[in-house]
Design a binder for these strands. Structure first.
Lengths: 289, 289
DNA sequence: CGTAACTTTGATAGCATTCAAAGAAGGTGG
DNA sequence: CCACCTTCTTTGAATGCTATCAAAGTTACG
C-alpha cells in the first residue's frame, strides 16, 4: 500500500533497546542510587542555585517487563521517579472494571496518589524493562524543612500530574474517537521528543486494548481510528510501528480552529455575571400544585 | 404525575439560603479571617496535636453569584478554601471549547492547579454567594518549615484533588450517560451530607448544560437520563429539585455487581507477567516486504 | 511448527447527538 | 402587580458514532 521501509528503519533507530536510550540505561544501571540533582534533571524541574543537592541518595530499582512496582491497596511508603522504560497505571473500580489511567515514562512520578490515604490507589506495571528512583516519602518530608527545594519539587510533581489529568478529562469529555487517538499519538510524540528520540516515528509499547482502556473506547475503535488516520494521510501504521506524517493535521483534528462561533459565545456568557440559578422564592412556586 | 410536595418541602429545608448553612454563613461573615485550625476543620484534615494553629490568620473573601474568583492565565498567588457556597471550575482548551471540571463546595480547595506554572489554568466562578479563605501560597511555603502541619494539609489537598480527578476519568471512560448522571447525583448527595444537609433531597445549583459539560454529555441527554432515572423509580425530579428515592439502585447503576466474569479475568491477566510487547527482532519482520 | 495473543475489517445493533419545538420559570420594565 | 422576554427544561424524530459480534490474518513464543 505504501513504502514503510523508511518508517520502519526510523522506528528501529528510535527503539530504546537499540539506541541512545539504551546507552543511558546502561550508564544508569552502573549506579545504584541518585541524588536530588538527578531527580531535578530527570523531572525537568528548575534547579535552585546554591542548594545542596548531592548529599541525599535515592536507591534505584529495576523493574522487569510485566512486573508490578506496587498495587492498589499496598501501604504507601515511597514515590518513584521513572528513569527509563514505560509503565502503565491501572485503577480498579469498586465494580471490578479496570481502566488504565496513564502510561508514565522517563521523568514522571509514580505513587503520588497514595499521599492522602496512606495506601496506593492504583496498580503500576512495567511495559518493558524499567528503572525507577525510590523516594521514601517520610524521609522526604523530614528533610523538607532543611531543603526547601524538596517542597518545590513535590509541588511541581503534584501540579504536573493534576494538569495531565485535567487534559485527560477534557479529552474524554469533548473529543470523539479519532481525535482521542490523534491526541494520544501527539502526547506520545511529545514524550519521545523529551527522551531525545524521534517525535515522528516510534513503536507503541501497549496493545490496542490498553490504548482503548486509556482513551475510553474499545480496541476495535482504536484500530479503526488508526486506519482512518492512515487513510487520511496523517500517519502511517503497521501494527506497533507508528509514523506521524502530518503533525499539523493531527493537531487540527484534536483542536479544530474552524469550529465556529460557539466557543466565543460561551466565553462571553461566562463573563457576564449570572443571577442566582436557585430560585429564592422556591417555596411559592406553583409547579407542585 | 407524582406528589412532590414532600420532596419540595424537604428540598426547601435544605436550601442553604434558608437553613443551617445560612446560620453558618452569617456566623462566618462576622469574622474577617480564619486560622489554620479553621482550615483543618473545614477540609476535614486530621488535626495535629500540640501544633500552634491559631497564630496564622487567613483573610476571608466574599464572592457574589456569577463573580469569578480567578481566571485562567491570572497570576497564581493564592489558593482558596471554600467556606460556603458552590462554585464551578471551567477549563478553556486551546480549541476554544470549554468544559466544566468540577463543582467545588465547602471544604474544597481552589487554585491548586496554578502551583506548577505560576498561573491558574482554570476559571472559577461562584454559582451562588460564596465565601472563601484566601491562603497566600508563598506565605504558606515560607511557614512550612516551622509548621509541619502545613505540608501535611497541602499534601492532603493535592491528593484529594487527584483522587477526585481519577474518579472523574473513570466515570468518563467507563460509564454511559444514565450511570454518569446517577454517579453525579450520588456525588452531590455525599457533599450535601458533609455539609449537614439532607443527602436525599436537594436543589441543583447548575443548569442541565453545565451538568452535561461536566459529565461529557449533551444537555438533552442529561434531561433524558434524569427522566429515565425518575421513570425507574430511583429519583424524583422537578426542574432543579431532586429527591433520591433509591440510593442502592443508583449505586447499582454506577457499579453493577452482576456484570460477570470479565473484570475478574482481566485482573488475572494483569497478574501474569507479560513478555515484552515490543518485538526485539523488529528489523527482521517481513511485514514491510 | 503449532498455539495463543494481537490486529484488522465487516455487519449489525445500540446509544448519544443533532435538529426542532413547545412548555415552564425567572427577571425586567412598565 | 402584571406582561413580556429570555433562559432553562423537556420531549420527539432522525442521524451518526461507537459497541458488539464475528471471522480472518499476523505475530510472537514455546
Amino acid at each position: 500500500m505504501f513504502d514503510t521501509r523508511m518508517a520502519h528503519e526510523t522506528a528501529e533507530a528510535c527503539d530504546p533497546a537499540t539506541s541512545i536510550a539504551a546507552t543511558r540505561l546502561h550508564t544508569a544501571s552502573e549506579r545504584t542510587s541518585l541524588c536530588l540533582a538527578d531527580l531535578f534533571a530527570d523531572t525537568g524541574a528548575p534547579v535552585a542555585a546554591g542548594a545542596s543537592l548531592t548529599d541525599l541518595r535515592f536507591p534505584l530499582r529495576r523493574v522487569r517487563c510485566g512486573e508490578s512496582l506496587f498495587r492498589a491497596g499496598d501501604r504507601f511508603e515511597s514515590i518513584y521517579i521513572v528513569r527509563a522504560g514505560f509503565f502503565k497505571t491501572t485503577r480498579v473500580q469498586s465494580s471490578g472494571v479496570e481502566q488504565i489511567m496513564a502510561f508514565p515514562g522517563r521523568g514522571d512520578a509514580l505513587g503520588l496518589d497514595g499521599v492522602g490515604s496512606g495506601r496506593y490507589r492504583t496498580d503500576v506495571c512495567a511495559l518493558d524493562t524499567g528503572l525507577v528512583a525510590v523516594v521514601a516519602f517520610d524521609q522526604l518530608q523530614a528533610l523538607a524543612g532543611t531543603h526547601p527545594a524538596i517542597d518545590r519539587l513535590l509541588h511541581l510533581l503534584f501540579a504536573r500530574e493534576m494538569t495531565e489529568q485535567q487534559q485527560m478529562i477534557c479529552l474524554l469529555g469533548t473529543l470523539m474517537a479519532d481525535a482521542r487517538v490523534a491526541a494520544f499519538l501527539l502526547h506520545l510524540s511529545g514524550k519521545f521528543a523529551r527522551f531525545g528520540q524521534s517525535p515522528t516515528a516510534f513503536l507503541l509499547r501497549m496493545t490496542r486494548q490498553e490504548i482503548g482502556s486509556y482513551l475510553g473506547i474499545k480496541l476495535e475503535t482504536v484500530s479503526r481510528s488508526l486506519s482512518m488516520l492512515a487513510a487520511a494521510g496523517l500517519i502511517r501504521v503497521s501494527h506497533r510501528s507508528i509514523m506521524l506524517v502530518d503533525l499539523g493535521g493531527l493537531r487540527d483534528l484534536v483542536a479544530p480552529r474552524s469550529t465556529g462561533a460557539a466557543p466565543r459565545r460561551l466565553a462571553q456568557k461566562a463573563l457576564r455575571p449570572r443571577r442566582s440559578p436557585v430560585p429564592r422564592r422556591f417555596a411559592q412556586a406553583s409547579a407542585y400544585a
